[in-house]
Write a protein that binds this DNA or RNA. Sequence first.
DNA 1: CGCATTTCTTAATCTAGATTAATGCACAGC
DNA 2: GCTGTGCATTAATCTAGATTAAGAAATGCG
Lengths: 179, 179
Amino acid sequence: MNNINILFNLNTDSASKIYKKGTILQRAGDPSSHLYYVKKGLLKSYTIDKKGKEHIFMFAPEGWLMSDIESQEFNKEAVLFFECLEDSDLIKISKEQSTRDDLSKEQYLHMSSLLLRRVGVLQRRIIMLMSASAKERYEHFLETYPELPNRLPQRLIASYLGITPEALSKIRGEMLREK
Amino acid sequence: MNNINILFNLNTDSASKIYKKGTILQRAGDPSSHLYYVKKGLLKSYTIDKKGKEHIFMFAPEGWLMSDIESQEFNKEAVLFFECLEDSDLIKISKEQSTRDDLSKEQYLHMSSLLLRRVGVLQRRIIMLMSASAKERYEHFLETYPELPNRLPQRLIASYLGITPEALSKIRGEMLREK
DNA sequence: CGCATTTCTTAATCTAGATTAATGCACAGC
DNA sequence: GCTGTGCATTAATCTAGATTAAGAAATGCG
């Protein structure tokens, strides 16, 4: 049994299922109802702003949990879209399963540890968005997630960084020339 | 006993102490060692970038917990400064107290709930930074924290929003004229 | 009280990154 | 094998917000 089964009292692999690349698991505006644990594959979560532009909130490769905690926590409809970037093997976890309050001490410890880690990552992201240039954010992304760039189109990396594909392309051009 | 005492097994008010406005509780670069619970008063946490510019990560008014989870979680030196914006009555909580693993189920439940809330708030902040204009972020700030603006200089609000005081002043001017 | 320091505002100029547009490529579907 | 659609790159232009500068208002302090 893997960690996530332990965490949510799931029985072995009952809920694991393969979703095709391009599958949209959740749409903004839907009632936000599930989390997804990625056994294999890659997901993105994103918002679409009022001009129709997509902004990546996060990627979830193997071992990550994809969730829309803002909407769950504030009881509003989903604010994020979830989509498979590759054929993905996922465990779908209902809101009820994830918010049950009859977990064991070990489970709570594990849950707290996951959440603390998440807060730490989000803190860094905010600080980078506020204080670093696009190029610095790109370099930080490459260092932090070295295995992701070769699984992602530039477009999506740019969106994660909060810039346009054109701006990222320019930065990459500069970095090549500098070397 | 208040919630935070319950959460961290603290005995009543032993650790509560008044700190003067302007006191720096933690400096970036120090070993990150404590959290602070705000009984009364107001704190800010911030980074200073390589150009010497300050960027507010968050404000902590009454009832909030100020922490530098990134540095605690990744075991590095503090990345944030903590400073009192008003004379503040604070409970200082050591890393050991906050990470002990012998909490009760109720305590873990409370802790998870706090962390989920925090993740939700940070998610919104990131989405706003990536997808909304300075003016939209300002309006969102006013709606979300209506009691803060009259306790804060514009400068710090601007820093929290990720813009300069000049840009915020311009936005405020526009909003006044529009009304 | 009076002086110094910080805060806020307005305005002129500058710049990182957005927008628009055009070109070449890769590859999916027929 | 062709043809359309999306992706990456480059370049020209535009713009939100930064920077710089200066004056007015507020605040702290001896």
